[in-house]
Design a protein around this nucleic acid. Sequence first.
DNA 1: CTGTTAGCGCCTTCAC
DNA 2: GTGAAGGCGCTAACAG
Lengths: 348, 348
Amino acid sequence: MPKDMDPSLRDSKVRHKRATIIDVAERAGVSRQTVSRVVAGGELVAKDTLERVTTAIEELGYRPNHLARTLVQRRSCILGVSALDLDSPLASPFIERLQALSRPLGYHIIVSNFDLEDEGGAGTLHTFVSLSVDGIALFPAVMEADVIERFARSYDGRIVAVGRVDQIEGVHSLSLDEVAAAQLVVDHLISRGRRRIAVLTNAWYPGVVHPRMAALQATLDRSGSPAVQFVAGYEPDIEGGMAAMTELISQHSSGDIDAVVAYNDTMAFGALHACRTHGLSVPHDVAVVGYDGTPFGAVSDPPLTTVPQDAGRYAEVVFKLLIDDQEANAAAEEPTLIAPRLVVRGSS
Amino acid sequence: MPKDMDPSLRDSKVRHKRATIIDVAERAGVSRQTVSRVVAGGELVAKDTLERVTTAIEELGYRPNHLARTLVQRRSCILGVSALDLDSPLASPFIERLQALSRPLGYHIIVSNFDLEDEGGAGTLHTFVSLSVDGIALFPAVMEADVIERFARSYDGRIVAVGRVDQIEGVHSLSLDEVAAAQLVVDHLISRGRRRIAVLTNAWYPGVVHPRMAALQATLDRSGSPAVQFVAGYEPDIEGGMAAMTELISQHSSGDIDAVVAYNDTMAFGALHACRTHGLSVPHDVAVVGYDGTPFGAVSDPPLTTVPQDAGRYAEVVFKLLIDDQEANAAAEEPTLIAPRLVVRGSS
DNA sequence: CTGTTAGCGCCTTCAC
DNA sequence: GTGAAGGCGCTAACAG
């Protein structure tokens, strides 16, 4: 790109207005349309014309204005991801994989933090509408079902709600099979002789019971060893896990609890630490199980038994539903459930 | 986009086309301009007109088309963040904080994964240009300086390069003060009687020496206890840390090394695990120090000594440079250095 | 193969 | 206070 075309400007402040399609057209001595065709792939353009235009594009450093194109084409090739917590060990792999899949097709990803305060979560969605995104992934979808459904009715694109097992009209749900996962966890603990099992749950969202907790509760009840206690209301982070475990320990005497299932690995790490500081030996006194398959669980002391989640897999399904599969909406009546695994390590 | 437009469509496929400013104008019986004024804040509009328009907006669920506005106003109110690794413990806090600061001013954040393959990293940047972002944060900026500089010349917005201590024309650099940090780390280890210090470094990028490594090398040399070894070329993740530590152990006999500085906490966790599996006691046999202040370091066994980084602070500086401070460019000649801290925990 | 015409939805400018 | 024209950069549709 040429730096100056007008000698009267100061060096460091010289900023060229972005070259437009017209600049290229003039330089190449063709019409805008021809330039447009070249940019679109160069089909149906005479070879020497194509070359002249290509040269002009390079000389001017021309890059098409994506916005102007979106305005007329009615598709932005942008997908919106509403993330509740980028810090979650699932968020980054999910976004990275979705990006890796989408980019070759010319799609970009916009990530926006979910904000429950903002119109009950709908604010985030309307932001995406303003930006004309072609599809939306809720990762996870924590707002109330009717908020999502109402939005879906007015939105002219696909929506995938990750982490939900319920069915919302106009939206595809995608989730770990929480019922099967709970069964794996409970079976494992019981097979290890654990009978006095507690659950550390996170603070969830108004009007929404986390399917994981519902599944654990039902499975434990059915197993004949109903949960000793659900410790709820803590943040799903290390401190939350420590606090929840500490509360649990303070409310029970030694031996009352012989296993703990945490909402996720991060809470489990906090729980492990609380056990350590309170002189409880894991897994001797109490077994600990988490969810997610955070890499750290492989090297914690003891290594953490966990239900791993394959965020990349989620991304693949979302990708398919959002842009790849034109028949997706028709087939999207049933929530997609991902089969769980259990990775047994030293903590249980 | 609706596939069909005939009335013969199935229920669930009926999607309202987004209401435009014209729809609102017609419904309210005013001109587009008046609607535009109302949306802009409602100044200079008669009270009853304003009310009629507001009602129409609500009834139609009208949301301005951000793209069309951007096209004419020449600012998108979108900031681009080029992230190398969303999984990094710094990335999420950075993005979340930047988002929290920007949203009240009407700014959105687009996150895009950096891809070195793509025009030497410039591809990511040009993506941002296509999307007409108003400013760009490179987090961190790993491409070669001249790639950045060349791009900056053609880009008509601010750029902040995080994690760089060098000065690039047209770009503001922002980084941890690596020299001071290295001094803290080395002083600490030496004060603990450590003399045989090794460094585990990550795989860095072509043509770029990581300032952290340069600073550690210089500081160790100056201290009279030059680094025993730099173990380089591993990924900055847990496995990389394990592998690097394992390589180190295999190349030295017991006692040859009494301290290890890892490129970041994540590698340090891997190193801790490698020590455990090889029967090395931390900190008795070998001290371990990381960088970043990952939350997990507080509950690892042993807890990890680290140089914490305040990603939120970085976000604040970036925010100021990108949109808040109109004088920023003038004052941006010197890289901004963030003073380091050292959190001493059980691993050293 | 290439050019012309007519917008996409919005805002700026300038009338009234 | 409000409206009418014009254009942001691009592409669809139709000419030639």
